[in-house]
Simulated assay, not measured.
Amino acid sequence: MGEVTTQIWCSAHQFGVQLPATPRGARQARQLAVEKLRAWGLPTDGPALIVAELAANAVTHGRVPGRDFQVVLSLRGGALRIEVVDTRRDRIPVPQEADADAEGGRGLAVVEALADRWGVEQGPPPCKAVWAEVDLPTGGSPEGS
């Protein structure tokens, strides 16, 4: 197996990471997001689940062999924005009701329940970004911002 390179970029109000589109990459996305959210002094539970669900979708449904996915966290306008970019622009996620016995299929329902807003943006071909925003508590400002 070849060497895996993870690219990370960071500023006072933005954090991004490029990871391999594998289950391990999805786990790393959640772990790195939790670390950054803690560093910013923000709650981790809801946003970490959103990152986990969107990253899992990117590696399951948005994967193209040999191409990575990106996770970007940014603080703007009193909200935390979570974006996951994959290279399957042709596969737009749509929430669906999962069968009671199904092991999967509830990811976007989780995102919809935890986020204040979410959506999909077409990027430059072949990319798309699935994003979610969580409003931050009024008067609370993340550390380091």
Rank of each mutant, 00 (worst) to 15 (best):
L49F: 12
G41E: 05
R27Y: 06
F69V: 00
G77T: 05
A39R: 15
P65T: 04
A39P: 08
Q28F: 08
R24G: 12
G41T: 13
Q28W: 12
H61P: 09
G41Y: 03
L37D: 03
L73I: 00
L75F: 01
R63M: 15
G41M: 12
L37H: 06
V51F: 10
V72S: 06
S74Q: 09
V71K: 00
R27G: 15
R76W: 08
T60Q: 14
R76D: 15
G66W: 12
W40V: 02
L54P: 03
G62R: 05
L49K: 07
G41R: 01
P47L: 06
T44A: 11
K36N: 04
P65E: 13
A52N: 09
L32K: 12
W40P: 04
G66N: 06
Q70L: 13
R76Y: 11
V34W: 00
T60N: 08
A26W: 02
R67F: 11
E35Y: 05
E53N: 08
K36L: 09
R30I: 05
G66D: 07
F69A: 00
T44V: 15
V51R: 08
H61N: 11
V34K: 13
R67T: 11
V59Q: 14
G78C: 10
F69H: 05
A58S: 13
A33G: 15
V64G: 00
W40N: 02
S74W: 09
R27N: 14
A52Y: 02
R27Q: 14
L54Q: 03
G77Q: 10
W40E: 05
L75I: 12
I50N: 00
L42W: 06
R30P: 02
G66S: 01
E53H: 01
S74Y: 07
V71F: 05
A33C: 14
L73M: 14
V51M: 10
G41D: 08
